[in-house]
Amino acid sequence: MLTGVAWALLLLGFWLWGREITDGPAAGSAPTTGDMAAVGRPFGAPLPPAHQPLSPAEPRKVEIPSLGIAAPVVGRGLDASGAVDPPPYEMPHSVGWFRTGTRPGAEGAALFVGHVDTATRPAVFYGLSSARPGEIVRVTRTDGSVAEFTIDDVQVVPRERFDARKVYGQRQAHRAELRLITCGGTFDRAAGAYTANVVVSAYLTGTSGPHARGV
């Protein structure tokens, strides 16, 4: 019973997080790829096999070379309402990592979140909706290793259809996965929030560095 209650509370927190990161002061509209639309990879282009999960280590930096993203990672917890805190608006070019969840490279789905913009300028994940399957995400970790992930799915999830279990849950058992999340859709001035979330999913396909090893 206690396990079930804890899981329910965690999902509630994740659902609130999904709503929280779409609430922002921006006056414009965020990039979008469609309504709950997955962006497919070119026909016949296979994705690489999954790499064995790594020993746990905390993230320090995240890079998406194809999008020109290179940002420090800051650990984030839950706020007073039970939702995961995104980075503060004073840190628009930092990426938040849910520090009590999975460490990137370890088995499970590690959760990263970043703002799409502020009231005056684009933020770290402004171009995230332009990501495509097959592109690379690199996470530098505190043990000196670099975990390399391959994007396999890009979706824009409307707020009213946000399902925490689907968005944050592990897609395949025994695999190290990554979720990168920001605002999407358009900015609803009446609600003071964006209408959707951009959700980029990736999985571990390689590693480098002196401490890169499987478990």
Rank of each mutant, 00 (worst) to 15 (best):
T100H: 11
G101E: 04
A119C: 04
R103D: 05
P53Q: 05
G101W: 03
G105T: 12
G105Q: 14
Y89R: 10
G96I: 08
F125I: 08
V62W: 01
H51T: 04
H115Q: 09
G96Y: 03
G82I: 03
V116W: 01
T120F: 10
V124Q: 05
L111E: 08
A80Y: 15
P48K: 12
V116T: 12
E107M: 12
G75E: 09
H93V: 01
P104F: 10
L78N: 04
A83M: 12
T100W: 14
V73M: 01
A110Y: 02
A70E: 10
P53S: 10
E90K: 13
G77P: 04
Q52V: 12
F125L: 14
T100C: 03
V62F: 04
E107P: 05
A57E: 01
D79Q: 11
T118E: 05
S66F: 02
E107C: 11
G82T: 03
P104L: 11
G68D: 04
L54N: 03
G77Y: 06
A71I: 02
L67E: 06
P104V: 09
P88V: 09
E58M: 12
T118C: 03
T118M: 08
G75I: 05
T120D: 14
A110I: 08
A57H: 00
A57S: 15
V74T: 08
A106E: 09
L111H: 09
S94H: 09
D117Y: 00
P86A: 06
T118R: 02
A70P: 01
E107Y: 07
P72H: 07
P53T: 07
G44M: 11
Y89P: 01
T118G: 07
S81Q: 15
T100V: 13
P46M: 03
M91R: 14
V124E: 07
P87Q: 11
A57I: 02
V116Y: 01
T118Q: 03
A106Y: 10
P65W: 07
A80T: 10
G114M: 03
T120A: 13
R76T: 12
A123Q: 00
W97S: 08
E58N: 11
A70H: 03
F125V: 05
G82D: 04
V73K: 00
E63Y: 02
P53G: 06
A80N: 13
K61Q: 13
S81C: 09
P86T: 06
A109C: 15
L47R: 10
E58V: 13
V113P: 00
H93I: 00
P104G: 11
A110W: 02
V124A: 10
S55R: 13
G82M: 04
V62N: 02
D79G: 13
H115K: 07
V124K: 02
T100K: 14
V113K: 00
T120M: 08
H115T: 02
E90C: 05
P48T: 14
L54K: 05
T100M: 12
R99F: 07
P49N: 12
R99E: 09
G127E: 04
H115W: 05
R76S: 03
L67C: 09
P65M: 09
P48I: 14
L78R: 13
Y126F: 14
T118F: 04
P86F: 07
H51Q: 15
D79N: 15
A70Y: 00
